[in-house]
Design a protein around this nucleic acid. Sequence first.
DNA 1: GATGAATGAGGCTTCATTCAT
DNA 2: CATGAATGAAGCCTCATTCAT
Lengths: 228, 228, 228, 228
Amino acid sequence: MDKKNNSSQIDHHPGENGGALSRSAQRRQREREQRYQTILRAAETLFAREGYHKAGMERIADMAEVSVGTVYFYFKNKEDLLIQLLDEIGYQLRNLLGSAFRQADMSLAGFEKAGKVFFEDFCPHYPERLAIIFRESVGQSPLVETHRKRIFDRLIADVREALERLQANTGVAFQSPLSAEVMAVCIMGMYERLAYQFIIWEDRSAELKTIGEDAVAYILGGVKNLCR
Amino acid sequence: MDKKNNSSQIDHHPGENGGALSRSAQRRQREREQRYQTILRAAETLFAREGYHKAGMERIADMAEVSVGTVYFYFKNKEDLLIQLLDEIGYQLRNLLGSAFRQADMSLAGFEKAGKVFFEDFCPHYPERLAIIFRESVGQSPLVETHRKRIFDRLIADVREALERLQANTGVAFQSPLSAEVMAVCIMGMYERLAYQFIIWEDRSAELKTIGEDAVAYILGGVKNLCR
Amino acid sequence: MDKKNNSSQIDHHPGENGGALSRSAQRRQREREQRYQTILRAAETLFAREGYHKAGMERIADMAEVSVGTVYFYFKNKEDLLIQLLDEIGYQLRNLLGSAFRQADMSLAGFEKAGKVFFEDFCPHYPERLAIIFRESVGQSPLVETHRKRIFDRLIADVREALERLQANTGVAFQSPLSAEVMAVCIMGMYERLAYQFIIWEDRSAELKTIGEDAVAYILGGVKNLCR
Amino acid sequence: MDKKNNSSQIDHHPGENGGALSRSAQRRQREREQRYQTILRAAETLFAREGYHKAGMERIADMAEVSVGTVYFYFKNKEDLLIQLLDEIGYQLRNLLGSAFRQADMSLAGFEKAGKVFFEDFCPHYPERLAIIFRESVGQSPLVETHRKRIFDRLIADVREALERLQANTGVAFQSPLSAEVMAVCIMGMYERLAYQFIIWEDRSAELKTIGEDAVAYILGGVKNLCR
DNA sequence: GATGAATGAGGCTTCATTCAT
DNA sequence: CATGAATGAAGCCTCATTCAT
């Protein structure tokens, strides 16, 4: 997009010129990638800890032990930092949840799996990422909002497709053509607010297992209700 | 809090000293109240339209047709403006939803009513308030977050109590002691994300009735599932 | 000077029209005077306690239990408040010290008396006034500085005259034509810094008697040295 | 205090890593130092000329021919600007006076020297610094006042020690245990008010030599008086 | 005379971004 | 590639003063 190769999951064209990179080029490439990650991790921590606006570029650079200029070499601007973070989290989330939902064909096991994964794996291990996707990235700028929407849209699509497969396979009829979409949005909303309430606002991580199970039960309850 | 009577729902002590206020005092009081409202409305519009950060105090003053100083006469600072707005919205929402949920004793009618009121009354008429409570007030400052949490806590408490009354009246057993709370949080989460998705992000207000009905059906489905 | 009769020591023209004021006019006059004093006392306290700049007109009005408008009725502006205060203090100081120095003819008793009065009467009883004349009024504006200078000039003149009378009466010769003036300035400087050091900065009021005696001894020592 | 090396008398560690700094690093360091000085000098001039409050940061930046941001790069605050200035002046003063007083052992020569240095060297050459230490820094903020006090305390300590050495060496007895301290404070007070009166208020710099000599005579007179 | 709401210029400070070295 | 000093627009807020009632 611009002159800066600003992402780890992009610049992998090994064997550019038909051969391997030179030893030193490889090392440089590796260092580049490391720096990129260090900065992103610093931003992640500071955004979550102090808030997107309060976290200045200088503080981020300090924490990453680089200069401000270097941050601007790897990222177009502060917004870009947030967007990369956001996309990364979205990617991870979709990997986690999406793969679970994709298992959901006839049974409801996929929904259970997704809940388990989210509440018992993701939430306790990545509280900072929760803060970023559900708090810090909210309402920051049109562009950020676009990325947020895309992430949610994809997650919702996964859930929706699971629901529609379920419908097709079990022969139940949804109340309206929008039902699947609405239910998918609902499910995302539950995940979001539960995480916000019990991780970001209160720290009830000890009860997270129960919370997750109750949530899954409720989610499934609504779905099951359709099946008979 | 301080000497300035900064809210419409507060200073109503008519008949202060046994009699009515003098004519001119009444008028001044009324004008005061009007100015307060004018400024708050201007802030509401600008916060929703341009975002909390982008909306400068000067712009707000301009839109309210007063000077910056006047804004600071009625509100302690920019944050205060947001908080008053937030509390106002929280108050309105609790009036709307709370009263519906409080009707929910044996039947599930209260849950239906609440959904109807939210999706068919509140959402289409107050999209700016949705933007403020669900977008602009998110992660702005610890104090704002405190107010947000209080609002959500109260709404959740209303739902939870309704669920617990239902449990008591119907004799069903929830899965865990946390179930009622978790379900209440889930329901708030659905409302939030549905509004965000279909009002703030996309404009699907035309389909709002269907969306609301589907949502209510899903909410009730999960609840009903408990009852047998 | 302007339409406002802004001083207690000015507006005493009793028997304006050859007769006494009416009863109610007298009362009004008295109330006027009281208000003036109340405001000035409030300003004195706040200027000393919080500093001239930090003390806002509104706070002063509050403490005097009047409105801002009323303050502006009695005083032209904030600077005027400070100046009236300053002049009042200067007047008091000159009464105290000047009368003592004027006693100094042949003996040095006047110098002793002045020191005693300043350190044992004025300093412990009017610490706020010390703060105003020696701290808060320093470098605030050209006009204030002018008043300050006039106050110091008069006090210095008193001392200087005492010294010159001493010279005339005892026949000693000062080192230079400036000596008397210089010594007078020195003496004022000692008073000032001693008060600043031991009242404003440290609170050594318990030792004030000793401090005063030591200071007087030093002052006299320098003077006595001339006499033989 | 923070990562920015904000003072000329601090960052002198030549030969950091066993060798000299690189040519360009040296130059950058020098330029840094120069900028710092330029800004401080601009502040000195404006504070003295227009007063601390009237001198806006923008004017200071303009005079130093840098941007406002640059001023804030080198100094934390406006207050910091004043404090650095103050400390610098205090340092210079202590070098001047302190070294003179430290010479005072048996004779009174040190006292003479100090007076001469102050009135004939410092006062005429640094009238702006007089204005800052004796006028502009007075009563500006608790922090500034703290620095002022420290400066005065140190100067007073120097004088006091000289007096106590004199006492020890000549066997005279002071009137009270506080005498030395009181006299030291007195001497500082004389310096201060003489400078204020004859440099800041009136411009009697032409007579400064005589003034200084008279002052010294008076100071010594008080001291000598003790010795017999 | 008294009130206090309204004014608005002006102040300080922050911070994302750039660019010469 | 990396640095970090420099920029300057933009933001929030204060507060002495005025004036209609």
